[in-house]
């Protein structure tokens, strides 16, 4: 049985039908990516799974439990964590405080060891520990946002556009971190506009077009698919 299973969800923004019946699965230990153009509904899909939007119909099942309609505050403790688009670090809090808030749903006795773990994985954050997050560079903020999402010890980590607005060298770095996380056993659902990079790290992929899934399959196959190459890989 899949770790995450989304069945035929429909999401509306007022009168706008943003998600028109999306179904997807994520298996344990997989990296699955959702690619597609701006406005295709990638972020809305993640936000709905995370509990920030309520779908009009359809179900979201995680680790055997139906999550549909639950608020995010009930979803995070079950092991589903999201690193949002635009990083969204708490700008007036220090790096350390941001990480501590990432562990909000865990007992405070466990926070210290997770902090150490994050500082080992992201040494840059250790150096900036006492700095206010709003003053970090874009790449550092992205690392902080990812580390913060990991602080809840998620079974599934959702990453929304982690490479957005970053210099190419930082994009490489972020993707190598994603690869490392995958190697250490974290299951990842990745939303990206950088389809090339996303498909090269992912096991499987779904292509979104205006609220529908138009294509899905093994990432490697999609990387060489003619339609995908034409539409998303610019070749």
């Amino acid at each position: 049985m899949s770790l995450l299973s989304v069945q035929d969800i429909h999401v509306y923004y007022g009168a706008i039908h943003a998600i028109k019946g999306i179904s997807l699965e994520v298996e344990e230990k997989e990296i699955v990516t959702l690619i597609g153009a701006n406005g295709a509904g990638k972020s809305t899909t993640l936000n709905t799974i995370a509990g920030l939007h309520r779908p009009k119909s359809g179900t979201v099942t995680f680790a055997g439990e139906v999550l549909t309609g639950q608020p995010a505050s009930r979803i995070v403790p079950r092991g589903l964590s999201m690193c949002p688009e635009g990083r969204r670090v708490f700008p007036h809090m220090t790096v350390r405080e941001n990480l501590e808030m990432g562990g909000y749903v865990r007992p405070s006795s466990e926070i210290q060891s997770s902090l150490e773990e994050m500082y080992t994985r992201f040494p840059r954050l250790k150096e900036r520990e006492k700095q206010v997050a709003g003053t970090l560079s874009g790449g550092e903020q992205q690392m902080l946002a990812m580390a913060r999402a990991l602080m809840s010890r998620p079974r599934l980590l959702m990453l929304d556009e982690p490479s957005m607005g970053l210099a190419p060298i930082l994009v490489e770095q972020i993707f190598s971190i994603i690869q490392e996380l995958h190697n250490s056993g974290v299951t990842i659902l990745l939303v990206e506009q950088n389809a090339q990079m996303a498909l090269s790290v992912a096991d499987r992929a779904y292509v979104l077009e205006t609220g529908n899934i138009s294509l899905s399959g093994r990432a490697e196959d999609l990387l060489h698919d003619e339609k995908v190459q034409k539409a998303y890989l610019g070749s």
Partner: peptide, 10 residues
């Protein structure tokens, strides 16, 4: 500071 991000912390 950020209501949406706060919700994502649980």
């Amino acid at each position: 500071q950020d209501r949406g991000a706060a919700q994502l912390m649980g």
